[in-house]
Structures are given as structure tokens and as C-alpha cells.
Design a protein around this nucleic acid. Structure first.
Length: 562
RNA sequence: CGCGGGGUAGAGCAGUCCGGUAGCUUGCCAGGCUCAUAACCUGGAGGUCGUGAGGUUCAAAUCCCACCCCCGCAACCA
């Protein structure tokens, strides 16, 4: 049996995640994992916090705590927030784990043995007052081209010229503000990507039409420009020590150990039950494993080029990515979400305002698949009110109440289906097939528009059959209609579960009938007759609440949406 | 100057690969229904498809050329 390995890009531990992080990789991955599990597939869904690097060191210093403590604190906050959104990771680990260290060393040694690692001397900016080397973007100064005074060492935001921090006039540290900076020569290890280029290019060519255009074209762009040797070490303290002489003060670069973290975290998972689980079954098993990665567009080069090259370079038979979903950005009020300026909606705020499923539905229905997408409370409210409350929530409510009034709180007898029911079965069979196809292909917006059609089909069925009239003249047929409608509620629960797990559970719990959230596996002529006659059901509070204009206005004020 | 994505009805999007009556959601207008949460169902109006009296073609949103605008990337912030 095929195994489905799913990873979401690892959120950087520094600071708190916002809606952009959620839709950028975590949530689409979760929906896919839930969908495959519902279909009965063997799924392993892995994620965790990416912890090494300068931003963590700087963040820890700001909060005046050791970096290990700082990372643990934020790791736990991430865990809490993702639990709040019901992300169904099989394991949520950390790139700083012992297990990851073990895998990083193993891969590094192989690359070393294969002659793919070389030493080069580079010139880096050192700040004595900070006691550290400064990454390019942590050096600020005057742009030599346009005179802009706050140019960053990697690029001038004013004239967009790409810079070398060494070229800045009056350079100073972005951390302490100190202008006592010096250029030092320092040795680093580089991975020789050019040696792997040919191999990589052939492999990527097989992904044409398989990966989304955005991923394929970005990978091709990098190949076209030619791969360069890539530094895999840094002059930092927070990271895995480089196990080579002369590198005692250096650690592996965060972008080297972060993707390897997928494997390291899988080993964390396996080590919890060593007699039952092996990371090798997933990661050194390419023939049986279908590996799907989710990430924001900025991450695509690392997942299509650097990481596959790293694995290939070992000469070992690692599982490589087969499906890859790259997403664009979610913007807020015309601009980016920002961690540093705390601009936008963060997950702790989001969950305080509305149930997780409201967000999950909106985000998936508006996933930034082809372009950046803008979040606005007006649109959010409109979607929640219409799709969730009016179309789905109201359908359930009207069916339950109508049945309770006319037949009591139990499933009425199903008579022989008429042409109308048969047409409904056929329409749904076709819609569900399309819906399933879109989810399999990770086409979320299309999938959601079909799901909505499926919900509308229920309301349409009632409009056509008018059970409130029929009940006065033909009780038996009215019972058949409502029986069918009640079965539709169950169907909707199953189909909605990957996107709205909590709501789906509530829908299932309406009926006193043992059920799970398995994917429909039979034609509707069978599937919509499953609830046994006489099964008791409960009248529940409406599943959703409308977001009224006053509330929307208040939200816009609170979150500063212009 | 480079690279990637985008520009289609008031708003949000699909359609472009493979040319053939311009589609969906929301909003607006009208009708139906009255079981349900002022909800549901149906119909209608609304677009020179960024620009070019460009090119190819019987036919262009779609292919080719030139240009304009928006967003992102450029190896260290999803």
C-alpha cells in the first residue's frame, strides 16, 4: 500500500504566527492530510518549528533569556495556536532536536565523503559591540548608488539595487546601532550545487505538468541562471556545531538543517514508539512513499533545488518530493502581514474572535493559489454569512425542525425514490467526483466552489419537492423527502470534515448513529439511504452565527483595516 | 535592465496550455416559496477581457509583437 508523507514548511519559531502563515502552508497541508485519512490512506503529517539562526539569537537577547529557553517558549506557543486551529499533525517537532542533529550529521558526512563540500574564505561584517558577525540584512547604512540612508546590506529598498554590505557607506549594526563594524575574513563550507545541476535538471523536467506552474517555473528559473555553490555554515552560536576541525565556532546554516528537519522530526515521532515506527519506512522508501510538500512561494527554491540536491548528493535513496503545493501570499489591507510591526491578524486574536472553522473555510475558499489574495473583514463576513450560515447552517436547521414538527425527532421511513430523488443522486455523484478530484489535485478554491454547489443542491431539492406542502397530502412521500434531506446532512458532514472538522463532528453528533468521518465510497443511491428509520436525532443550536455590520465595523477598527 | 505572478461586470475570481456564442460567487433589480436564522429557489441588468484603428487567422480573453500598470522575488523574515 502506498504511504502518503505530507510536510508543511516549518514556521520560524521567532514570534507568533498569523493568518498568512496558516494559509501559506499549514492549513492546506492539514486539509490534504485529513482528506487522505478520510479516504483510508496511510498518512504521516509532519511539521515543527524552525529554530536556528540569527533572528532567534536576537529575539532571545531582546527578551533577556537564553536562546534555548526562548525557543522552547515560542515553540510551545506555536503548538497551542495550532491546536486551536485543529491542525492534525502526526508530530509537531523542532529542528533543534537531537534527532535532527543526528540526521544532519549523517547527511553532511555523506556529502563530505562524496566530495561535494568545499572550504572557501569569505568576507563578513563583524560587530565587536554585538560580539557577533552580522548577516547581510542586519547591516544598515547609506546606499552607494542613491544615497538612501537606511539601505540594508543585502538590498537597497529605495533604489532596489542589490548590494554587498561591504559597499555600504557608514555601515552600522541593525541590532545595536553601533557603527563600529569591521570586515573580517572567515572560512565557510560550501555545498557544490553545480556538480549536481545536471542530475537535478533532469529530475525537475519530470515534474513539468505535475508541479503547479509557479513551482516548476521558479525551479527552472534557478537552473537557467545556473546554480552556485551554497554556504552551509555560519558564524553563530545557535545551531548545530560543525563537526570539522577549524569550525569550532561555527554552526550549520539554518537553511541547511531546516528542510532536513522534516526527516529529523519524523525521527522524533518514530523514537516515541521505536518498536512500531521507523523513519526509514518513510524517508528511505521512495517506491512506496508519495511525498507532498506545502510551502509559501518564497520557499520554493529551497524545496525544489537546495533540499533535493542535498539529498541527491548523499548518493543514498532518499524519498524525494513528488507533489508540491506552493502558495502565494495573503495580504492585509493592501499590504503584507508583518510580524515585526504586528500588522494583520495573528492566530491568538483570530481564535478569540471566531471559531476556527470560520477561518478555515474562508482561508481555503480564498487560498492564494494563482495570485496574492487580500483579506478584508467585509469579504470574510460576507462569505461566512452566506455560505456557512445561510446555505449550510440554515439547511440543517430547516430540515431538523421540519422533521421534528411533522415526524418527531427520529428518521422517518424512506419510501421508493422518485425521479426527483434519482436526479438528485446523479447530480451529487457527479459533483462529489469533481470535488474529490479537486481535493486530490490540491485545487482548493475550485474544490470549495463545488462544495458550495453541493450544499445548494440540498436547498434546491427542498425548493423542488416542497415537503411542507407534501406533508399535508402525502405523509409517506414527505417522509421520504425528509429522510433524504437528513441523509444529506450526514453527507455534508463527511464532505466538509477536512475543511471544518469541528463543525463536521457537530453535524455527525446530531444523529444517534455510530459514524465516522470517512469519505463517501458508494453511489448516492446507496449512501443517502444509510441512516436507519427511527434513528433519533437532536435539535441543535444553529451551527453558525452571522457577523453583523456593527461587528464588522468594530473589527476593522480594532485591527486597523483601512 | 533581470526573473516570476497578475491586469476579465461595483467587489472577489474562473476561462488562456489546446482560438469558435465571455462564465462563477457576492452585491443590485424582479419573481417564486413561506419549512427554516429577513433565510431558501429562479430569472434579469451589468464587461470595447490593461493599452496598441498592432500582427497571424474565416474567427483572438486565448497565439505573436510592442508598451503601460500592480504584486512578489533576487540565495538570510511565511
Amino acid at each position: 500500500m502506498k504511504k502518503y508523507l505530507i510536510t508543511s514548511a516549518l514556521p520560524y519559531v521567532n514570534g507568533l504566527p498569523h493568518l498568512g502563515h496558516l494559509i501559506g502552508c499549514l492549513l492546506p497541508a492539514d486539509v490534504y492530510a485529513r482528506f487522505l485519512r478520510a479516504k483510508g490512506e496511510d498518512v504521516l503529517f509532519i511539521c515543527g518549528t524552525d529554530e536556528h539562526g540569527t533572528p532567534s539569537e536576537v529575539g532571545a537577547a531582546k527578551e533577556n533569556m537564553p536562546v534555548e529557553e526562548y525557543c522552547l517558549k515560542y515553540h510551545q506557543l506555536h503548538v497551542q495556536m495550532y491546536e486551536g486551529f485543529n491542525l492534525s499533525f502526526d508530530y509537531f517537532g523542532r529542528t533543534s532536536s537531537e534527532q535532527n542533529k543526528e540526521i544532519v550529521y549523517r547527511i553532511f558526512e555523506k556529502l563530505w565523503q562524496n566530495g561535494l563540500v568545499v572550504e572557501k574564505t569569505t568576507r563578513q561584517v563583524y560587530s565587536p559591540d554585538d560580539g557577533r558577525y552580522l548577516p547581510d540584512s542586519y547591516v544598515i547604512g547609506t546606499c552607494p548608488y542613491c544615497g538612501y540612508e537606511k539601505a540594508k546590506g543585502d538590498q537597497c529598498e529605495n533604489c532596489t539595487k542589490v548590494l554587498d554590505p561591504i559597499d555600504l557607506i557608514h555601515p552600522k549594526s541593525a541590532i545595536s546601532g553601533s557603527d563600529k563594524v569591521e570586515i573580517r575574513e572567515t572560512k565557510h563550507l560550501f555545498l557544490q550545487l553545480p556538480k549536481l545541476e545536471q542530475d537535478l535538471a533532469e529530475w525537475i523536467e519530470t515534474k513539468k505538468g505535475v508541479w503547479p506552474d509557479i513551482a516548476y517555473s521558479i525551479a527552472k528559473k534557478w537552473l537557467k541562471e545556473g546554480l552556485q555553490e551554497r554556504g552551509i555554515t555560519r558564524d553563530l552560536k545557535w545551531g548545530f556545531a560543525v563537526p570539522k576541525e577549524g569550525y569550532e565556532d561555527k554552526v550549520f546554516y539554518v537553511w541547511f538543517d531546516a528542510p532536513i528537519g522534516y526527516i529529523g522530526i519524523t525521527k522524533q515521532w518514530a523514537d516515541e514508539k521505536p518498536t512500531q515506527r521507523r523513519f526509514e519506512d518513510w524517508w528511505l522508501n521512495p517506491d512506496e512513499t508519495i511525498y507532498t510538500e506545502f510551502m509559501g512561494k518564497d520557499n520554493i527554491p529551497f524545496h525544489t533545488i537546495s533540499f533535493p540536491a542535498t539529498l541527491k548528493g548523499t548518493g543514498e535513496n532518499w524519498t524525494q518530493v513528488s507533489m508540491l503545493k506552493g502558495l502565494n501570499y495573503l495580504n492585509f489591507a493592501g499590504g503584507k502581514f508583518s510580524k515585526s510591526e504586528h500588522r494583520g491578524i495573528f492566530l491568538d486574536d483570530a481564535i478569540r474572535e471566531f471559531p476556527a472553522d470560520y477561518w478555515r473555510y474562508w482561508l481555503i475558499a480564498n487560498a492564494p493559489e494563482s495570485d496574492d489574495t487580500n483579506f478584508s473583514f467585509d469579504q470574510f463576513a460576507a462569505t461566512v454569512n452566506k455560505d456557512l450560515n445561510d446555505v449550510l447552517g440554515n439547511f440543517i436547521n430547516r430540515v431538523l425542525k421540519m422533521t421534528a414538527t411533522n415526524f418527531g425527532q427520529q428518521i422517518p421511513l424512506l419510501g421508493n425514490p422518485t425521479t426527483t430523488e434519482k436526479e438528485l443522486y446523479a447530480a451529487l455523484d457527479s459533483l462529489i467526483e469533481t470535488y474529490t478530484k479537486h481535493l486530490s489535485q490540491l485545487e482548493y478554491r475550485k474544490a470549495m466552489s463545488v462544495l458550495r454547489e453541493i450544499w445548494v443542491a440540498g436547498n434546491n431539492y427542498l425548493a423542488q419537492t416542497e415537503p411542507w406542502k407534501v406533508v399535508k397530502t402525502d405523509t409517506d412521500y414527505a417522509g421520504t423527502i425528509l429522510n433524504t434531506a437528513l441523509n444529506l446532512i450526514r453527507l455534508y458532514a463527511h464532505l466538509s470534515a477536512p475543511i471544518m472538522p469541528q463543525t463536521a463532528q457537530k453535524m455527525i453528533d446530531i444523529f444517534e448513529y455510530p459514524d465516522n468521518l470517512a469519505w463517501p465510497d458508494a453511489p448516492m443511491s446507496v449512501y443517502l439511504t444509510k441512516l436507519p428509520t427511527g434513528t433519533p436525532f437532536q435539535l441543535i443550536q444553529p451551527l453558525f452565527q452571522k457577523i453583523l455590520p456593527d461587528r464588522t465595523a468594530e473589527l476593522k477598527m480594532r485591527y486597523k483595516e483601512e
